[in-house]
Nucleic acid binder design. Structure first.
Lengths: 335, 335
DNA sequence: TTGTAAGCGTTATCAT
DNA sequence: ATGATAACGCTTACAA
């Protein structure tokens, strides 16, 4: 039974030199005879030598791996963010280990521990909860960590998020300008900073335009197309009056569109619908969705860049950077 | 400057025992005093010890990591497959390193080398090319490799793919049964086995129903919504007659729908459209897409399971398994 | 029941 | 210009 991989020892034996002459050749060090070097390199190639990254990791205490912890990487939003991370990471020779939490805190905790055990050089995480204690846990790991898509109350970790207050404001003001007055808000739960920010934007658009906030128009639901669909059905059935729906995200909007279609409520004539995120899907639904665009790939790239900075600094915890990405209202046909 | 991580050495010192007494405690070995064990464990906990996976990898020559090489993980098809892989891998305590090739062979080669260097225990790959030499390269790595979404000519590696011949047959026969006679086929390039299989299904549906194959109705294009859109525009402009379009995948179908809509061609009245894959989007486009469903998550899970089997066997290369997944025609409104 | 030492693959330090 | 050796963190013989 042969060994799985060729080591520098094998090369050394084949070349009749010591292992660290091999190392020198491989690493292009100056203190080596040119001929020896070429010979060693040739033999290494012939033998099919591939550097063992696990050995290097042990040696240097650095893995060149960053951990990515998402809620659900199959969610089109995150899959685009992931692409941005991967792109930027690749440039620096970093690899990605990916784990999903399915929005369950136990899984998040487990994922963080796994990443710790893997000795990742850094972590990009979308926290499922934003409780102070959970953030403290993240902080206690002592490994450079960037928080994605969340604005922490205490600015204790580097973070990237988009300007959700403005985004929501833009969306709702657009509805108001188009003459909508009773604007339903299908929001996510308010323990999330994102939900809070979008709510703030919703409120600001109303007050700025001299419109009152009717709390009975604001709902909070669990994420998922199906939940939005069900909630919309329920609202429709309840007889509540409204002429527009502002959705926490495009997935919600799609569920809403579905429910509205079944109830034969014309969009946007009778009810206008606005989403959030501008996932690639949104352009193609029926009718094409008016939404707030977040540059997801840029968010991912930014997250890695921020992380990379932190990794390079010893005192990355002091004065963590915060990046707020601009958003853009995309007007299509649903509102 | 403190060390980043607590090691068994630290624990040993704190507990006043040797490092392998610590190791014994940590690994729940029998030959250790119960009291010592509990004390060591307590100290380990207090110090916040986390096992170093990089050290274990080196020690055992096993990483418990599998590499995943995709064309583009932000593609909704692959992001769902990825989810399946992750799910199953997690059960076995495996982590995933993800890399994208963007359908460029140089990047694929680089990715494979990186995975080799990372000493992944196994590899799941969607090959961009299916040239014999490239498969040989994969074979030469000597690490358990599962090919996903491709049927290799030579059955030299374990592979998972879906029954594309049947899928295409189902789709096209459905069109024929609905009275369509001039069925456009917007296929991918035929160097891909998938494209070949789907073409075979297209042909079989025709011959079985006594219809001739009109080669002028068959097109091969590069992947991407935009390309399908452009091609459809071009065909529309050319004046070619047809009453249905069978698309290589849902992305193509969406581009086609877009072009048809702009040209005011009603779907399905004037032209019926069928996609392939049933990505989550397809249900919501306009009109909802009739398509062939592949259980993407199952494909991912299967791929991991197959890989896991290979990893456990020493002679995984002999008699590689092949899994062909069943598909299902999903009839919605576009055809 | 506990400790000592070798080894996994690599590089850095120190000799030669 | 080259070689011997230690070290990274851990487990597994083997010795005590």
């Amino acid at each position: 039974m042969m060994k799985k991989f060729v080591t520098i020892k094998d090369i050394a034996k084949a070349a009749g030199v010591s292992i660290n002459t091999v190392s020198r050749a491989l690493n292009n060090k100056p203190d080596i005879n040119q001929e020896t070097k070429e010979r060693v390199l040739r033999i290494a190639r012939e033998l099919g030598y591939v550097r063992d990254a696990t050995a290097l990791s042990l040696r240097y205490g650095l893995t060149r791996v960053v951990g990515v912890i998402f809620e659900d990487s199959s969610n089109p939003f995150y899959s685009e963010v992931l692409k941005g991370i991967e792109l930027e990471a690749r440039k620096e020779g970093f690899n990605l280990i990916l784990m999903n939490t399915e929005r369950r805190y136990e899984l998040e905790e487990e994922a963080v521990k796994t990443m710790l055990s893997r000795r990742v050089d850094g972590l990009i995480i979308v926290p499922t909860q934003e409780r102070a204690e959970d953030i403290d846990f993240l902080l206690s790991t002592n490994i450079p960590t960037v928080v994605l898509g969340v604005k922490l109350e205490r600015k204790v970790l580097p973070q990237v998020y988009s300007d959700d207050e403005t985004g929501a404001f833009l969306a709702v003001e657009h509805l108001i300008q188009r003459g909508r007055r009773r604007i339903l808000f299908l929001n996510a739960f308010m323990y999330k900073s994102v939900a809070q920010m979008r709510y703030a934007g919703y409120v600001r658009a109303h007050t700025k335009n001299g419109l009152p906030i009717d709390k009975s128009l604001v709902f909070q639901i669990e994420e998922g197309v199906e939940n939005a669909y069900a909630k919309m059905k329920e609202i429709l059935f309840s007889g509540l009056e409204f002429d527009a729906v502002f959705c926490f995200n495009d997935m919600f909007a799609i569920g809403v569109l579905e429910a509205l279609k079944e109830a034969r409520v014309s969009v946007p004539e009778k009810v206008a619908v606005v989403g959030y995120d501008d996932i690639s899907l949104s352009k193609y639904v029926c009718p094409p969705l008016t939404t707030v665009r977040i540059d997801k790939e840029a968010e991912g790239r930014m997250a890695f860049l921020l992380l990379f900075e932190s990794i390079k600094q010893k005192n990355w915890k002091s004065n963590p950077k915060e990046v707020k990405l601009a958003v853009e209202l995309i007007i299509r046909e649903s509102a």
